[in-house]
Simulated assay, not measured.
Amino acid sequence: MVIGLTGGIGSGKTTVAKLFHNFNTVAVYIADVEAKKLMNSSDIIRKKLIEAFGEKTYQKHQLNRPFLASIVFNNKEKLHILNSIVHPEVKKHFQKFIENNTNKAYIVYESAILFESNSQHQFDFVISVFVDLEERIRRVLDRDNSTRQEVLSRINSQWKEDKKLLLSNYVINNYALQETESSVKKIHNILTKKAATFS
């Protein structure tokens, strides 16, 4: 059984993913982290990115992130090209991850753009992590050097929260850690029971 976990920027979905990771019967795949690793380790991705964006995409065999970001930031067409190169390789990598974790009750796939990339249909259930807009802005401003406008721009590039919540099977309101832990535990118990009857 494979579960999609998502949430807007600043919602705390990584915290929730870590809580699921604490259960030894659950395997957690963080798509963004694995994508970053693959962009440095996959020869297929390297070759295609250089073809698409030029030799400067890599420096000393490492991805030149600032260079690539400057190209795709605010350019939907270029971002689409980047995603069309990276996403298929992440998908293949995740399939191997599933094969290597067949002993687990279920697998959690955490991605910020689960709905935006139209991936929700690939999962048996979807969990969304929710926090109101102002709290999300505050959290992002606290953790990095963005301006409020930059944070809002990133938020606006993602789906609206109400749309995500309507399409989710479970919603975790992530304000207080204790309550979040309790919600995760409840959902874990439900999913474990479902997994036992899943073929």
Rank of each mutant, 00 (worst) to 15 (best):
V28N: 06
D32A: 09
G4H: 02
E161C: 01
K164L: 12
A195K: 04
V171T: 14
G10K: 03
T147M: 03
N40R: 07
T14M: 08
S111N: 06
K18E: 12
R143L: 08
S128Y: 02
V129L: 03
F67E: 05
G8E: 01
I172D: 02
E51Q: 13
S119A: 14
H80G: 13
L82P: 06
S111Q: 02
K13N: 08
L177K: 10
K48W: 02
V16A: 05
S182A: 08
I98N: 01
A31I: 01
P66T: 04
Y106W: 04
D132P: 12
I71E: 04
N173E: 12
Q158S: 10
S42E: 04
V26N: 02
N173D: 05
Y109K: 11
M1R: 03
F53K: 05
V108R: 00
S119T: 05
V171G: 01
P88A: 10
E99G: 04
I127M: 06
G8V: 03
L167A: 15
R154Q: 10
K48P: 02
R65A: 03
H61E: 15
I3Q: 00
I50K: 12
S157M: 10
F73G: 09
I71R: 05
E55T: 12
V33P: 00
R46V: 06
N101L: 01
Q158T: 07
K186N: 11
E34Q: 15
D142L: 10
H121R: 09
A17T: 09
S128A: 14
K48N: 13
L82V: 08
R46K: 15
I98H: 00
I85V: 13
T6P: 05
L68R: 01
I44D: 12
N189S: 14
R136W: 05
N40V: 14
N189H: 11
H21D: 14
L167E: 11
L68Y: 08
V108G: 03
E77T: 14
Y170D: 03
E34M: 10
L177C: 04
E150R: 06
R138K: 14
L191K: 02
Y175A: 00
K78A: 15
Y29L: 08
L82E: 05
D162T: 14
E135L: 14
K186Q: 12
S128E: 06
S146Y: 13
Y170A: 03
K92A: 12
S157R: 06
I172A: 04
D43F: 08
V86T: 11
A105D: 11
N75H: 13
K193R: 10
L79S: 10
N145G: 14
S168V: 10
K48L: 12
L49E: 02
S119F: 03
F130M: 01
S70T: 09
S42I: 07
